[in-house]
């Protein structure tokens, strides 16, 4: 299964506005994307399109997460989501 790691760049972590922007983007991708902290088992990964799941994940700036997806367009979707996580969305 294609997967990528990403380091959270937003100052406030994956909360509030960054979480909303990321969940919205994940919801719009053609494949289902999951998110987990690095090192956690894949079966415990959360739905990346769920803002509530992202909030319970509680990822702070500098934390490393793993994104996973399968199917047509998975690689492209993961690449764009990684880019989003590695942008400081609070600065915009």
């Amino acid at each position: 299964m294609p997967e990528r790691t990403a380091t959270i760049a937003s100052r406030s972590g994956l909360h509030a506005r960054p979480a909303a922007l990321f969940a919205e983007a994940a919801g719009e991708s053609p494949v289902e994307v999951t998110i987990a902290r690095v090192g956690e088992p894949a079966e415990e990964a959360l739905d990346a399109a769920s803002i509530l799941s992202l909030m319970t994940l509680g990822a702070a700036k500098g934390d490393v997460v793993v994104l996973r997806a399968e199917g047509d367009g998975a690689d492209a979707a993961l690449d764009s989501l990684v880019a989003l996580l590695e942008t400081d969305l609070d600065a915009e």
């Binding site: 909303a20 969940a23 919205e24 919801g27 959360l46 739905d47 399109a49 769920s50 803002i51 509530l52 799941s53």
Partner: peptide, 8 residues
């Protein structure tokens, strides 16, 4: 976004 949250 919470209103259409997949988890909920």
């Amino acid at each position: 976004l919470m209103a259409k949250d997949p988890m909920l």
